[in-house]
Design a protein around this nucleic acid. Sequence first.
DNA 1: CAGTGAGCGAGCTTCCGCTTGACTT
Length: 774
Amino acid sequence: MKNLVIVESPAKAKTIEKFLGKDYTVMSSYGHIRDLAKKEMSIDVEADYEPQYQISDDKRSLVNELQKAVKSAGKVWLASDEDREGEAIAWHLQETLKLDPATTQRIVFNEITKTAILHAIENPRQIDMNLVDAQQARRVLDRLVGYEISPILWSKIKPALSAGRVQSVAVRLIVERENEIKDFVSKPYFRVTAQFRPVDSTKVLHAELGNHFENEKDAEAFLQSLVGSSFKVSRVETKPLHRTPAPPFTTSTLQQEASRKLGFSVARTMQVAQQLYESGYITYMRTDSVNLSDLALGMAKKEIESQYGAEYVKTRRYQTKTKGAQEAHEAIRPTDLTAQTINSESAQRRLYELIWKRTVASQMADAELEKTEMEISIQGSKLTFGCTGEQVKFDGFLKVYMESTDDEEDESRERLLPRLPEGTLLAMERCEASEHWTQHPPRYTEASLVKKLEDLGIGRPSTYAPTISTILKREYIMKEDREGEERKSVALTLQDGKVIREERTERGYAEKGKLFPTDIGCVVNDFLMEHFANIMDYNFTATVERDFDEIADGKKEWRKVIDSFYVPFHKNIRQTQQTSQRTTGSRLLGVDPVSGKNVYAKIGRYGTLVQIGETNTDEKPRFASMKKGLSIETITLEEALSLFALPRTLGQFEEKDVTVSIGKFGPYVRHNGKFYSLGKNDDPYTVTLERSIEIINVKREAEMKKEEMKKVFPHEIGQKDGEAVMSNIGRFGAYLTYKGENFRLDKSLDPLTLTLDEAMKIIDNAGKKKSKKK
DNA sequence: CAGTGAGCGAGCTTCCGCTTGACTT
């Protein structure tokens, strides 16, 4: 063994090994192998911010293996990605594996082809310490911010909270959007639509008035004024229009489109993309680059030519405009563009097809359209109706793919218009003025939040999904569906010279999977905005990124950059810790009619709660947790008082008290020292004694059944090759045991009546799958 | 595994970015 090549990803290692042949062994570092120690700050501020690195727990055995491989290798090639993090990974490898910088080869390639890799091997360099230092600065800054602010939140608001350069700004976006929505005053307006017909034809023309009316009176007056009017086509304008395809997918745009077109969460998209990547169907899925390799461009051209014809080909190179993009990889694309679809489970197939279409469309010709705008004049009025139509002259990339939008009101009312010359007289067939409301700005979805973060240059492709799950886990935000609000709206129709008024009940737009801030999210955000405005600034990341770039260019020293940030920052930390008030988001709801004491809603150590009485008096106040769906801001006095109804004693069963309450794991019934969880549809505030007894009995029966099961299992189905085939019930359901190995049983199969033949079939099939994988 | 919330004090929590696995029945 002469050469050892180390890359970041095992899938990449497998591919490269094939290109390099016998003289090379390719191993993977699985990302970073070393990081700041988890406990405490692990940055020696006194010693000029010396970082204390440690091999990550889950990498110890890997590092051992790498060490062994290094010993038997003549030359070591560090081939991690060509960006800040990749350079740091290479450096950490060099340090940890005690490689000699003079003989260690640093190589990079951002296209996994034989040519690119061989070219890289011929052009090795040494590790770029400036780039490594830029990464160290990034790492140290994030640790300082996160580990100094978080403890302040623990002491001033609630334990186990967190703050960080990325997550806190993500929460800020959601809190501020919610505030905008709260301040938004929805106003009604009237939109007038009409249907015309040329007097000597049956063609129909759908048009809309260029103006809206603010109230019903004006709308009605306008409709009245139309009675007896004549209408004609006053202007026709036709102009060419062309549309360009969207660039190939990056992580962020893939997440957005998969959310809009397939309804995937950001995490789901990444999970499915990972599977596609590991099966070799697509290129790497964590990327900020829209660039396609020459190989891919060539494949696309060939594929489009053969499928759609040469006139559909237009080779395009896209430029990445994203702030702070590092472009260590290609855009996300199929590895083989001749495969329009793949034979795989549904989610993988659908995501793959989306990627295929987007990639191919990006290399196709513009769509050529003809847009016609028609204006219809009203005799005796300055107002005009208008309609637009679009005709596709050449479909180009539209043959394959059209990008979606987030706009909920996007009705794409464009249609083909009949050809009518200017001056054509029109008869009005019907006309309606309908009431609508102005819409508040939309709440973020996971995907639109990712887009916003990317626009601000905050976060990286590998962190978008984890960031969202962090702020969900901390309960700063929640993801919810909301029904549209019901509204009464007025519609006025012009019929036989009269205006008919009709009231309709309408539902506004339903919101699905939208992000809402919680009480805690709002209180933490207010606190951070008050005390750490610079970190919360939307430009903070962009500003420090400029410093990191200068470090990478060798123009600045990383420790100095950190020092000029840290000195004022740390002073602010100390001051905030000493002087700021404990923050609970407390709100006075009113007076308890029974005790005459004040009732508050606020944040406590374990979440939001309501409180009767004061905390700074001798007499202890009474507390009760808030139910799901209640918030400090909207809870009423009555709702708050009702929360004190627990625990309730419902009566007796088998001569013992039956009580109901809410515990750590949800609502429960307690009887004779035992606990029984309430069902999903049971409300602890109203549940009856009868229902509680039913719950107790159901659980008792289930437990008895389980006991009986234990007696029956493990069950011997039969013998094969002198070994027993057993069935059993475990934590994850029924399974078979044979020759010391376990095999999952499908839910539809009964582990007791299964025959030996059936069991052996399952075992054989599972065995085949395993050997295939290897 | 079925509270808590005041106060006492121990010991715990926390960042972002790079990569997969997982006692997988």
